[in-house]
Design a binder for these strands. Structure first.
Lengths: 319, 319
DNA sequence: ATGAAAGCGCTAACAC
DNA sequence: GTGTTAGCGCTTTCAT
């Protein structure tokens, strides 16, 4: 009877001393086997080397620790095969729930998990079902602020570099951009919306396309910070000065965006909050006796973070 | 008899079909319990948000996957308590081995693991013992190249910003710097060796100290890339041009150092190789019938990576 | 070639 | 309040 109040203190103490002496540690495997509860939550990310994720993983781990849960983190590296493998690993380890941070990619491969009624929490994924919660990111809020900021700086030709449009989150970001431009009556030329892939290299390439286009933008909004950093890198090699010649805005507010030169103006989606929310959502679902038939919907706000990579449109400036 | 050759193909096929239909997955817990082998390797890092680690974690996971191992990754966040907790988690999950990438911090807290004869692999840690392997990083090689590069650019007053000197790896880097300077007869003024802590903020602060000192360096070598980025950030706010006014060299070659502006000249220690080596070392140890009494020593070379953050000493230039 | 049985380390449910 | 027992899902051994 471990830790039960109805036990003689002396006996308890003796027992604990022996436990110490023997260096005993309970086997979670045996415990899980008999209790039917593994106390493990899974976390599937698209890639741990994506600078967006480590902070979310950190908080997920921290929160798990506080709740006596273990975590199993896997990366899909954008490979459907790896997504399947991840699901399988989760199942074989009998996780009690899985947070999926692949932002809408290949989630059909998780059928096995759904079939087994493992509580799931997605980010940016649509249809509500039982035991599947969703964290919706309110992209519009931050993107609208960013667009209006650029408009206030008298930028009119504003470009947007998208992420891979297979991702729901990338589509949502692009849509929010288009809507924000529409709202204030700015033209949103299709030539100024170019495809990137959320990588540094992708940002460079997309910006190169923009440079070769007929319409040269005075500002560019990027689907993520990594892309924006790629753009700035290209500017460096092309001798384009940021922000004097070109305003650049990122998205995500990864830790490093503050330390890029110039410090990057961006839109924050709190990685800390995402990790915390994902864990809490799972914990909530696991503790529910009868599953909520529609799952639960959570919302994560985005917000604009002003730093030094934006300036007045040089074509319109007072000077 | 799964996958055994001596089974009728038809029967086997029927069995597999049923397995599919039922959606059966073996329980790793039960398997581990009865076989005494968990097929889990642990990986303890000082913090997953340190940009050095994600790549090593990625490779560790990838290699584990290929060998049918699961991984359990924990962060100590430089907290002795968390180090203890990590060790405990590893033990409770009956991992077959643990790779410790905290570079020499608080490793005494891992006594429990050593006592239990869990194969261990450390980075940069001294005394060989049975079942404890070590990956030694050859700091001198890369640092010497960096110092000689600076000397060739006619820098004489070269500063060094250290990491936290509680870390073996930080001490080793500093020592390699001092030795490299000595080797070519350059004065290594104690005032030019200032303490940092491997963070961006630490880099800024350390460089501020250097700016306020009597001896103003024309080049600064940093104990890691993050520190170097902090230095460059400070330069930006102080209107010091890199590399024209100051040459900066980092250490680690994290992925982002290529994308910093200007692209950072640095010393590479392959994070990919480290992850792979750590896994292989554990696998090797686990497969050993009788443990190697002295453990095994592995060596990881460092190398110089020339990019754009270094230039001729302005005080000595031909122009 | 196939089936039966023991037991890994633990928890829960029960008698004492 | 304390000791005893069954059995979680597998692997391994031994009999058939």
């Amino acid at each position: 009877m471990n830790r039960h109040p109805s036990v003689q203190p002396q006996l308890a103490k003796r027992v604990w001393r022996i436990i110490e002496e023997l260096g005993y540690f309970p086997s979670t495997q045996a415990r899980a086997l008999v209790s039917g509860r593994s106390r493990i939550f899974g976390l599937i990310v698209s890639g741990i080397t994506n600078p967006f994720f480590p902070e979310s993983v950190r908080v997920f781990e921290e929160t798990a620790l506080q709740n006596n849960y273990e975590i199993l983190v896997t990366s899909t590296v954008h490979d459907p095969e790896r997504m399947k493998t991840s699901a399988r690993r989760m199942l074989e380890h009998r996780v009690e729930g899985v947070a999926v941070m692949t932002f809408g990619m290949e989630e059909s491969l998780l059928e096995d998990l759904k079939l087994r009624n493992v509580p799931l929490v997605f980010v940016d994924v649509g249809p509500p079902r039982p035991r599947v919660s969703n964290i919706g990111i309110d992209y519009l809020n931050g993107i609208r602020q960013a667009v209006q900021h650029l408009a206030a700086l008298r930028h009119e030709r504003i470009a947007f570099i998208t992420g891979p449009l297979t991702l729901k989150s990338a589509i949502a970001r692009k849509d929010a951009f288009v809507q924000s431009m529409d709202e204030i009556g700015l033209a949103c030329d299709p030539e100024l919306i170019v495809g990137g892939n959320h990588t540094l290299e992708g940002g460079e390439e997309a910006f190169a396309k923009l440079l070769n286009g007929a319409l040269r933008p005075s500002a560019v909004l990027c689907s993520n910070d990594t892309t924006a950093i790629g753009v700035m890198h290209k500017c460096y090699s092309e001798k384009i000065e940021v922000p004097q010649d070109l305003s650049v805005i990122g998205f995500d507010n990864i830790h490093l965006s503050r330390y890029i030169l110039p410090p990057l103006t961006t839109i924050e989606v709190s990685q800390t909050e995402l990790g915390r929310l994902a864990f809490q959502a799972l914990l909530h679902d696991v503790q529910l006796e009868t599953p909520n038939p529609k799952g639960t919907e959570y919302v994560l706000k985005t917000s604009f973070v002003l730093r030094d990579s934006t300036a007045m449109n040089p074509g319109k400036g007072r000077s």
